[in-house]
Design a protein around this nucleic acid. Sequence first.
DNA 1: CCCGAACCTGAACCATGGTTCATTCCCTCC
DNA 2: GGAGGGAATGAACCATGGTTCAGGTTCGGG
Lengths: 222, 222
Amino acid sequence: MAYRRTGKVSARLADNRRRILNSAREIVAEGGFSAAQMSEVARRAGVATGTLYRYFPSKEDLCRQVFREVSTREMNILANIASEDAPAMERLESVLRTFAGRAIQGRRLAYALLAEPVDVGLSEDRTRFRRTHAQVFAGILDDAIEAGDIPPINTQIAAACIAGAIPTALIGPLAPESHEIEDQSGARVLDDIVAFCMAAVHAAPGTAAQKNEKTEERRIAS
Amino acid sequence: MAYRRTGKVSARLADNRRRILNSAREIVAEGGFSAAQMSEVARRAGVATGTLYRYFPSKEDLCRQVFREVSTREMNILANIASEDAPAMERLESVLRTFAGRAIQGRRLAYALLAEPVDVGLSEDRTRFRRTHAQVFAGILDDAIEAGDIPPINTQIAAACIAGAIPTALIGPLAPESHEIEDQSGARVLDDIVAFCMAAVHAAPGTAAQKNEKTEERRIAS
DNA sequence: CCCGAACCTGAACCATGGTTCATTCCCTCC
DNA sequence: GGAGGGAATGAACCATGGTTCAGGTTCGGG
């Protein structure tokens, strides 16, 4: 009697699952995890609340799934830059600039990933995310020291500082208001932040400055 | 008939109010604002839940009061250092060290003040706190530039970066575990963080290093 | 000593939002 | 085409935690 799951059905199931995840992601990107209520996710995905529980055992699981998808994407972008075949200092600056640039566009998503109030389950994932994150910075810094580009420093601490400085300056309460960033001054803010971090690791002066005029070409794809 | 509030009574009222505030503060210092449930505050203060509402119109008001008391205290400490009659770079380092040092002891309180999930009412106060905070840094940096101690930089951005870097490196998920900090290595971590920030603003090298041996004497009073 | 006002108490109330489950719908198979 | 099982529904359920309020207690004034 057992009935075989036909192609059309499992396609629909997969589609539902995807649509739920996408809806959740959209909501998070617009209003953070606090806006991601199950009823709202369901509404946007065009299914009933109860249906969510056929695809995810709990809200926490759904949110973690969303978090992982988004953060993995971000991580990969940075990791790719870090593993490029280029001098450490170039990779460092590129990573910083990309990180900050992506946070500026999609500030709400960056906020959700990095700073928003979340409960314990998610903050476990976030911890992993930020650590991995800092590891990318630390790795490049180690390379730079190895290559003699910068003097020896505590790369773990420096990486943590960078990982804190950039989001704070961009998306926290200390950040300039959105409208200040939207327009042309955004590039300037970005340059200043990158310059701060480069100086912090004793990058040879000028390295960051030269790049200023390149900012325009370096627009990051969303 | 009008009944005059006698001294003994208003003393008791004041005492109650104080005890409530103190209990709330203790709880926040131990477990953050999330642990500060009204029933728990009442229990610790030795009054009934309803009584809290004779002293504070809502939980939010109570929490904001606590936040203000604690943050004002912290702010004053930093502001005093900032307004000392000393060279800008000395004041800068002193402020950084004090800030980081106080965050290290009382990490949970620092977490509550700086990073913990809170709802909108409180985060308004927190925003003010962090801004004032960053202003202290920025003011000193301006002095330093004026005095020619460091090259001109965007002090607003630098201040925001510093205000983000220090807590992240100390109390966030990127921070070393408590036990790593409790023991002798705490001073080392602190030195590295301060060194990072000093370098970031192009402080002349060595300034931070000289101070390392002074760390012991600079133990911050709680 | 008694009255009324102020104060205190804590159990009941309520709002929010995640989770469940009896019912309905739709699909596969015979 | 209809029997039976998986999938979907959404209103009801429940847990949490802030807030209220009817009833009891304490205090000042006469």
